[in-house]
Amino acid sequence: MRHAGTLTFVASQTELAKPLVEQVRSTRSTIALKIGMAASGLIFVLFVLLHMYGNLKAFGGEHAFNTYAHHLRTFGEPMLPYGGLLWIVRAVLIVSLVVHVATAATLWKRARRARRVRYAVKKNTGATWASLLMRWGGVTLLLFIIWHLLNFTIGKINVTGGPTDNPYRLLVDTFDTWWLTLIYLVAMAMLGAHLHHGVWSACQTLGLTSNARARRRAKAFGLVLALVITIGFSLVPIFTVFGVISY
């Protein structure tokens, strides 16, 4: 058992008091951190939506999918160099990731400090399970993203030993492996949960839900978006397993 403070001796109440802060800046507050998290989260949401659209091209077959992958890299040429747009997107994503993870970690740390002694019994009556899953869900997503990039972008790992320079084939080989599919589907469920709470939460953080109606709408929007994205992403692995997507 740990005790509540770092105090060792209390002569009077004055010793328990904290002074008023003097230097105050809005940008230093927890709320500013949250705004950073919401903004980066929403950038992710945009990205995943586009990414999902791209993935669904797999239903169009090898050619459609690979052309699309190629297009991504030639988009904007000659104004942009080969892969230029992709690098801009990547830069934005990397910055967002750093912001998102850093703010998440800071808030997590703060929350742990804010309650050093835990309750012996604690019920949750107002929270959704999704909201309580955010942090561990986020960690899962981070691990997933690392693996995912190794899998498809940086490492181009093909566990079946097949080709790695053909995006379509890499994809099909990956989901022909049951345990990889499983990892992806679990990750997509996590993503769904993350977005179920995350989307409405971001609206709340940005101050868009200052009445009961707006709050209900934001929650409904979060749920719909989460379902669309989870299902949308899951289609490709599932249909690969069932052999609809193949080569």
């Binding site: 802060v21 809005s26 949250k34 703060r110 400090r113 804010a114 009556t125 939460s201």
Partner: peptide, 23 residues
């Protein structure tokens, strides 16, 4: 700005919109 700064300074955590409070 000032109230939030004091809130943070006191060691309260940040809100992640869980909703237990309102319940």
């Amino acid at each position: 700005v000032k109230m939030v700064a004091q809130h943070d300074h006191e060691g309260f955590g940040g809100c992640t919109n869980i909703g237990e409070c309102a319940a």
